[in-house]
């Protein structure tokens, strides 16, 4: 290890210990186990800063945090999966003795032979570990993919197709009874949010957006001529939508950053109240 690296490591370790002690003393009136709480807070701040250090470049502190995060979360996901899905859902429906073994209440009257199917499929998936019987894992995979495709077909047909079409049946000249001729329209022109003009414009944007968007996603014809122009309108509307969405989501992300900075400056350093 280079001398400079050792210097950095020693500095960080010293800062960590100093922060731990100061935090422990500061929490004396709040917690009984103040030094443990001080350690946890300091460690959280260290991990936060380690992850943020990636903005500078890849470094050992980032690697440490990354591997800790991956290891802990993978193990946690596995334990949660086992205890909520297999023990929590399957065991109490299949076997009383196993329920007793795991010390969970047996759900009498819920037994169904079909509950063995996920057990069998799960075991078949594990057959991947065997070179000889690895082919068996393809059967549950095919089942999952086929079932997903079949179930989603109807769901998406309703939500993304029929409902979307029905939602586009909107009047382009204002709500029922609003249109009283071109003369009346211009004489009562108003830019109020609920006014006829704004509503008309809004409906026209929806209609053109849906129609031209559909043209953009039409793959059976080259996008040339009038068709191409409509397609361009479609992509423009999409891009404007994405721009608005970008700004909106970035604002959401900023609030996450504010959350972490608040943790560092308020909970850890205590600089802000």
């Amino acid at each position: 290890m280079r001398k400079s690296s050792l210097m950095v490591l020693a500095t960080v370790a010293t800062l960590f210990i100093v922060s731990w002690i100061f935090k422990g003393i500061a929490l004396e009136d709040i917690y009984e186990s103040n030094y443990l709480q001080g350690f946890l807070l300091t460690f959280s701040a260290f991990l936060t800063l380690s992850i943020m250090s990636f903005l500078y470049k890849d470094n050992p502190f980032y690697k440490f945090s990354e591997h800790l995060f991956v290891g802990v979360s993978a193990a946690y996901a596995m334990v949660v999966g086992f205890w909520t899905t297999i023990v929590g859902n399957l065991v109490p429906r299949l076997s009383e003795s196993l329920s007793n073994f795991f010390q969970i209440p047996y759900q009498e009257g819920t037994y169904n032979f079909f509950y063995y199917l996920p057990v069998i499929f799960g075991l078949m998936l594990l057959m991947r570990l065997s070179k000889k019987h690895g082919w068996m894992s393809r059967i549950p995979l095919a089942f999952i993919i086929g079932t997903t495709a079949g179930l989603n077909f109807i769901g998406y047909l309703r939500s993304d197709f029929t409902n979307q079409i029905a939602a586009t049946f909107i009047p382009l000249l204002g709500a029922a009874g609003e249109w009283k001729g071109i003369g009346d329209f211009f004489s009562n022109l108003s830019l109020s949010a609920g006014g006829q003009l704004v509503m008309m414009l809004s409906n026209w944007v929806i209609f053109l957006g849906v129609f031209c968007g559909l043209i953009y996603f039409f793959f059976s014809r080259e996008h040339t001529g009038l068709f191409g122009k409509a397609s361009r309108v479609g992509i423009w509307i999409l891009m404007i939508t994405f721009g608005a969405s970008f700004g909106y989501t970035v604002m959401g992300r900023i609030s996450l950053l504010v959350g972490r900075i608040t943790f560092l400056f308020k909970d850890w350093l205590g600089i802000i109240s």
């Binding site: 079409i165 029905a166 586009t168 049946f169 909107i170 009047p171 382009l172 000249l173 204002g174 709500a175 029922a176 009874g177 609003e178 249109w179 209609f207």
Partner: peptide
Amino acid sequence: GVLAATVSAA
């Protein structure tokens, strides 16, 4: 649908 909605409303 848009044609029907427009004529119907107007």
